[in-house]
Write a protein that binds this DNA or RNA. Sequence first.
DNA 1: CTATGCAATTTTGTATACCAGAGATGTGTT
DNA 2: AACACATCTCTGGTATACAAAATTGCATAG
Lengths: 225, 225
Amino acid sequence: MAQNGKLATDLVQKLERDIVTGVLKPGDKLDERSLSERFGVSRTPVREALQTLAGSGLVATMPRRGTIVASITVAELIEMFEVMAELEAMCARLAARRMPRADIEGLIALSEECSALQEHSDADAYYEANVRFHEAIYAGCRNSFLERQTKNVRNRLAPYRRLQLHRPGRVKKSNNEHADILNAISTGEADVAGKLMQQHVAVQGEALNDLLAIVPRGYLEPLAS
Amino acid sequence: MAQNGKLATDLVQKLERDIVTGVLKPGDKLDERSLSERFGVSRTPVREALQTLAGSGLVATMPRRGTIVASITVAELIEMFEVMAELEAMCARLAARRMPRADIEGLIALSEECSALQEHSDADAYYEANVRFHEAIYAGCRNSFLERQTKNVRNRLAPYRRLQLHRPGRVKKSNNEHADILNAISTGEADVAGKLMQQHVAVQGEALNDLLAIVPRGYLEPLAS
DNA sequence: CTATGCAATTTTGTATACCAGAGATGTGTT
DNA sequence: AACACATCTCTGGTATACAAAATTGCATAG
């Protein structure tokens, strides 16, 4: 979609991965000069890459004050989770109606993968499998625009979502919810699948308090920016 | 959000307005040198502006082949309307729950404005009022992230949505649907408001065929890109 | 010792120059 | 006359140089 030059595209992907996987954390400064030296290119493609990332919301750049990995306010966090839950619910609803049998088999396999990893209580490994499970459902909605849109919001929430699974008991609960969602999709109960997914993703009540409690300093902006 | 330099920001806004209002049409070529001469700046801020617009999907740039105002395929058009309907439905649902009385009064005023303009059967004037009505509902959801996201998709669909109102009878029908939506929001019936909005925005069945029939050449990409 | 103001340095924003690749056009050959 | 190949030009991609603004550090005054 946003096709810039080859160098810039590479940079976008590298930086995006680093942000989504947590190598770069919210609030980290992205200096154009350092980045250009580190990647052995001039500042121009670096700027283009940062520009692109700013467009998708992964970084924030203040005029004349540089670029940082986007950190959001508590209010925005709540807002984004609200939208995320609805987007994923839509994916699940459509997947229940449109996902071919063969792909559902694949989804089952991914679900089992999650279950297996859940036993070992390795939050990071589970997170990766979890991402694959969810992405399979995005793909199942057979709406590539919705898929892109959903992945985009997911990426922006990634640093925060990752934290959730480090809460005791959350992995097991998450895995159980997967089973129910999978079942609803498999039987074609669109509205049920959507509702379950909505609840699976939504962060409300106690879960919100728990999440806020474990968000590290710097991941959230102070109220007065 | 995506704060580039002052010049680039100005360009983004100017180009965005031209695209959304139809001055620039899908498929139009955006030559960097011409734009830089026309606006009296160098190519650098022009490139940054195009970069930003590409990020939001309003323009498409093919490597080494330049930038054009984004034109989409029929499949994408359908997909985007499907998502648009759901986003607006979510706005309406939340607005029904959260919109303060005072703001509902404003919404009523906007609705009456639409009704008044509908009489004169001036599709363009109605379109503007229509936009204001819908934006008031976006604002009513009290989720600024959802609001931005919705406006973004709306902007991308603007060239196509504008066409719809030129279909005979569509303006009157649209206006009637507004009344029902307004009523549901006013009485706090969230699910009804959402469902009505979803149907109001969705393009399916005959409406889709009608829309495709009046889309000018160049607005849609050929299947093989 | 702290606060304020000025200067120097760092870093971003813009302009320009250079390079490379894709498409167009023309010529030669079959 | 038609097709293929080569060259040429036009446009984007990248690098670098220059200008303006902000932060930081130091010095001086209170």
